[in-house]
Design a protein around this nucleic acid. Structure first.
Lengths: 345, 345
DNA sequence: CTGAAAGCGCTAACAA
DNA sequence: TTGTTAGCGCTTTCAG
């Protein structure tokens, strides 16, 4: 007995001198129960410290009130805040959330989805690797609602909650230009990912729209890691080509840049301006503090969860979902956060 | 149908032309099944994309293979790493983990525990607020295994996995003393918590053991927040009593100190040495990087989970647990990480 | 307003 | 090696 000496609804029924059905009724706040009876049953329940068995209940109502959260890594500074948003929203509707980190491993993603499906979660919030296109496809015959978070797998029918990466990067670069910078370098994210690709597009578009020429030598390929930022900066210094400003595709890489500059006695923002993306919590704590495009991480989580629960409700009522009609992607705005790394001298 | 058109074991049985029992047998890898039969059933299962209903299974075997994780806030930099450790360990035994943040709110803790109990998790890993003594007491009559993490509620029967806070703080201060500092201030953690209390004790003991007098004016009460660190440092500066070194009860407060020093043009480590505790990921990224006592967060998570699963196994076999006999607290060692904030000039 | 009975999808004796 | 049967603890008709 992992659960303790199972007190069951039957026990409560006997102790209260009523039928199981009646106990069930008071448990579920149904009308049609005499007030005295209700009171008596309630009393027995309290005294017995009874807690209905969720498994049994789920089995018959065919709903578990739990949702699955599948992300690359809860330990990545981006996700805890998202997770918290999801959790807070879930709690409002009495859902609990089961989470799993996949490290972007296909194999793991499969396993984890399978496990959640067996556990009969009511829905899934996922942030899958691009390579896993077909995994979502194979889910379509099941009627399990899914919401994608942060990354959207192209052509998938499931709605996504995310930001407009291209536009956000565009705005970032526009800001640097508005500050008077012309020679602006870009350290790209992982170009295997949609955000990585789109942020680069935004960078290019902003440069072009401002009649600045695109200089491929100013574009350094990174992978969203701090190390990549460090290396890119190192290379710029080595080549003697330190730009006026850098737009790193995420904060972590910007931190790498920061470190490289420190080691080479380059001053930010005096010698060059630096801008990141995402606004992870560290960014406000480093010195100089990092100018960045803030993602509304908490809200992304909440909205994803809200959308998912809506989908669940719909499917419970109608037995089916028309993804096309029902739900479009939710695009949340990012916000420029000016800090010291781009301060005017 | 949140779950899709429920294909059940019955469907598989019919399609395979065998009985439900036989299907169940192959599902659970029992012996006593003809190889041909097994193959045929397996084939049908695969073709039908069938996934057994975990609820139904759990209901009869009385085990859910899920555990609950109850922490103050997944968004607190300490916990994601712990959570990841738990998850990785859980995965090895095919458990999934349901998590919940409580913000140390009593009410929330109660609700969440209740919810998990209804969901019939097989065990609980908890980090509860001190004020919630009785909540654990009331759980004792249930036979649900519980492991405490990081904080242990005094007098509770449940084992804890954590560090030796007093010793760790002692070692931190000893290090500062060994570095030649005599006037060492301490910014305490939240003194409502055991870690907060014990780290202060460690500080005091180290001072005394080295024949340095304890100066109450050097002890500033904080609450583990960055702001508290900032305020404490501010006060020191204001009073014109900047010490030779500061031991902050955690890294976050040390970061506050860092900021206050920056604003007042005090140089670390030149003007004073600074030491934190925990080694959250930021600590290596700020400038100067922060000397600290590293908690083995990932391992704490893993060990807590391992212990819990052991307890679950025991209780499944024997139906009962002898907490006294079975399990003692697991105390993991912290480790001094020397970085720039205490570097010798 | 209340209860009896069927059944959710699965496992586990017990027979065959 | 296989099938029959009786539940696990709950909800839900359907009668009373």
């Amino acid at each position: 007995m992992a659960i303790g000496e199972n007190i069951t609804i039957k026990d409560i029924a006997e102790k209260s001198g009523v039928s199981i059905t009646t106990v069930s009724r008071v448990l579920n706040d149904k009308p049609d129960v005499n007030n005295e009876t209700r009171a008596k049953v309630l009393k027995v329940i309290k005294e017995s410290n009874y807690r209905p068995n969720g498994m049994a209940r789920s089995l018959v109502i065919n709903q578990t009130y739990s949702i699955g959260l599948i992300i690359p890594d809860i330990n990545n500074p981006y996700f805890p805040e998202v997770a918290r948003g999801i959790e807070d929203q879930a709690q409002k509707s009495s859902y609990s959330v089961i989470f799993s980190s996949t490290d972007n491993k296909l194999e793991r993603e499969r396993e984890v989805i399978d496990l959640m499906l067996q556990k009969r979660v009511d829905g899934l919030i996922v942030s899958l690797s691009l390579a896993n296109k077909d995994i979502l496809k194979r889910l379509e015959d099941r009627k399990i609602p899914i919401v994608q978070l942060d990354r959207k797998i192209p052509d998938s029918i499931y709605p996504a909650v995310m930001i407009d990466n291209k536009k956000s990067a565009y705005n970032a670069v526009q800001f640097l230009i508005d500050e008077g910078h012309k020679k602006i370098a870009h350290i790209t994210g992982d170009l295997q990912t949609v955000p990585g690709q789109e942020r680069q597009e935004g960078y290019r578009k902003a440069i072009l729209d401002n009649d600045l020429a695109i200089n491929e030598d100013l574009i350094y390929e990174g992978d969203f890691s701090k190390k990549a930022g460090y290396k890119a900066m190192d290379k710029m210094i080595e080549r003697g080509r330190v730009p006026e400003a850098i737009f790193a595709a995420n904060d972590l890489m910007a931190l790498g840049v920061l470190e490289a500059c420190r080691n080479s006695n380059l001053k930010i923002p005096t010698d060059l301006a630096l801008m990141g993306h995402d606004d992870i919590s560290i960014s406000n704590l480093v010195h100089p503090s990092l100018t960045t495009m803030a993602q509304p991480k908490y809200r992304l989580g909440r909205q994803a969860c809200e959308l998912l629960i809506n989908l669940i409700d719909t499917i419970q009522e109608k037995g089916e979902i028309d993804y096309d009609g029902f739900c479009q992607d939710k695009i949340l705005a990012t916000k420029l956060v000016k800090r010291d790394s781009t301060a005017k001298n």
